[in-house]
Design a protein around this nucleic acid. Structure first.
Length: 259
DNA sequence: ATGCCGGGCGAAGCCCGA
């Protein structure tokens, strides 16, 4: 089965592109971020007509995440545990039923954190604390799971077109990388990086300054897999094509295939 | 280094993203 993650930057603005990509690529599960609408305005019917079950954690104007799955979803978790006062819609998780073993899949939109001298940055680091705690809980089950989404983290210098220009940004600075390593060091596998050694493969290109045309991108959309999911990893890639379409999102889909 | 782009909201111009 193919599991994809895509920050669509408004599902209303991206509906045509999303439909086109789903028909082209036929993913089994899609983790969407930045849908930028409340649950009632998510175009669930469009996706149901394409054969998907839909779970949404929406929010007006900002954030918002969703899960699409060809097979039914169970035990849907809305919101990242650990802070009842956090009202950002940035996390949804469900168990994807399959013919063989079920897989737990999360769609997450990790806070950007800029500017770093404002409360936005400690919010990012605290959100990562909660994600680490939640991953620790999931690992106790020893079941396959995939934490997929827009992490707003550039893992290494190989994942950014100009490391010097980006160092110090909330996406690429020591405290952020320390937190990201705490997460991956629990035993999670970056699906794309495991399948591809080449550097400078990106999942985001800014709308400005011709970033797409110059391939000035960053790799910040990741699928982190539990040991039991990573054991079943058959392939992974970044699908650059939707970034080149008319009226694109600034992110493009990333996917893994597991058996 | 930035808000040059693009989206939301709402009907002009500001907020936000990375």
């Amino acid at each position: 089965m193919k599991i994809a993650t895509w920050n669509v930057n408004s599902i209303k603005a991206r509906l045509e592109n999303a439909e086109r990509w789903l028909k082209d690529f036929q993913p089994d599960v899609v983790c969407m971020q930045e849908i930028k609408c409340i649950d009632e305005n998510f175009p669930s019917q469009v996706f149901e007509d394409l054969g998907y079950n839909v779970a949404v954690h929406g929010q007006k104007t900002y954030n918002g995440v969703a899960l699409l799955s060809k097979t039914p979803m169970e035990d849907i978790l809305i919101g990242l545990p650990g802070d009842e006062s956090d009202d950002h819609a940035r996390f949804i998780e469900a168990t994807i039923t399959t013919q063989s073993a079920p897989v737990r899949v999360a769609s997450l939109y990790l806070p950007n954190g800029n500017p770093t001298d404002t409360p936005k940055y400690p919010y990012k680091l605290g959100w990562m604390d909660r994600l680490i705690t939640h991953a620790e809980e999931l690992l106790k089950s020893e079941e396959p799971f995939v934490l997929a989404g827009d992490y707003n983290v550039i893992p290494t210098e190989d994942d950014v077109w100009d490391p010097g220009a980006w160092w110090g940004d909330a996406l690429y600075r020591q405290e952020t990388l320390d937190q990201y390593r705490r997460l991956t060091n629990l035993g999670l596998t970056d699906g794309f990086r495991t399948c591809h050694g080449q550097s400078h493969r990106y999942s985001f290109w800014d709308y400005q300054r011709g970033a797409w045309q110059k391939d000035h991108g960053i790799r910040i959309d990741h699928l982190l897999m539990s040991p039991q999911a990573a054991d079943r990893l058959k392939g992974a890639d970044i699908d650059r094509s939707p970034r080149g379409w008319e009226r694109p999102s600034d992110h493009t889909p990333v996917w893994v295939e597991i058996d």
